[in-house]
Simulated scan of single mutants.
Amino acid sequence: MNRELKYALGKTIPIMFSYLFLSMAFGIMMNQAGFPFYWAYLVSLTVYTGAFQFVIVSFLSAGAGIATIALTALAMNCRHMFYGVTFLKEFKSMGKRYPYMIFSLTDETYALYCSLEYPEELDHHQVMFDIAWLSRAYWLIGTLVGALLGQIIPFDFEGVDFCMTALFVTILIDQWKKTEDHAPAVIGGVSAVVFLLIFGASRFMLPSLMVTTALLLIFTPGENILKTADDRNNVSGNSAVGKTV
């Protein structure tokens, strides 16, 4: 096992536990809906979008149209258009891995990318790629295991989805401790609460993200954004030099 893979494996352990349990629940739901085990695996292989995969079980059972499924997927996952921009240039610099990095970006991997401090001797692009495929592997393995076990043993996974909430709270606390500037967390938190009260739990995400993004762009100086990009480029350069040496 190379150093990058070993480092990525250690950092994705929290994601592993979350993804395995949730994807197993999805596999079991697909089985209970009357679909063979390989259908659950194929959905996870091609869709890979957590919460929407649980919704798609009902759509497939009801024979919903492609347009309905596509629009619902867009509404539930539009947040990726906002935070995905953060790593767009970095993903492009990864060459052939660029399309896969976009496809495999999830809430959990994004949070992990933002919180990691890469050792200088490691190729941080390789670490990010290892995090991406490892996380997806956890989800695929859990889906297959859940679909197979669902044919044999009935499970009750009620409340298991809270492990995702616990993961994000842990990452938030870790980031709060590491940085002195708490404005982004406060702005995001206040925006989420305000729009949750206005629009309710099913509709608050998109307006909350739009307002949070706008406020951060307004109150974040341009030179700080450029500095962050330069810092990432320097880390990449240092990693490449370290591996060459």
Rank of each mutant, 00 (worst) to 15 (best):
I15S: 01
Y19E: 11
L20P: 01
L20W: 08
L22D: 10
S23I: 05
F26G: 07
A33I: 15
W39G: 06
A40N: 03
A40C: 01
V43K: 02
L45N: 01
Y48V: 05
I56H: 02
V57T: 12
S61Q: 14
S61W: 10
I66A: 12
I69A: 02
I69N: 03
A70G: 04
L74C: 10
A75Q: 06
C78T: 14
M81Q: 15
G84N: 10
V85G: 03
F87A: 02
F87H: 11
S93P: 00
Y98S: 15
P99M: 04
M101R: 01
F103A: 13
F103H: 04
Y113C: 02
C114Q: 13
Y118W: 08
P119G: 04
H124K: 14
H124F: 14
A132M: 11
A137P: 04
A137N: 10
Y138I: 12
L144K: 06
G146Y: 08
G150L: 11
P154E: 09
F157W: 08
I173A: 15
W176R: 05
I187C: 06
G188H: 06
V190S: 02
S191I: 09
A192Q: 01
R203Q: 14
M210C: 07
V211L: 09
L217M: 15
T220P: 10
T220C: 11
P221H: 09
T228F: 01
N234S: 14
S239V: 11
G242M: 13
T244A: 13
T244V: 09
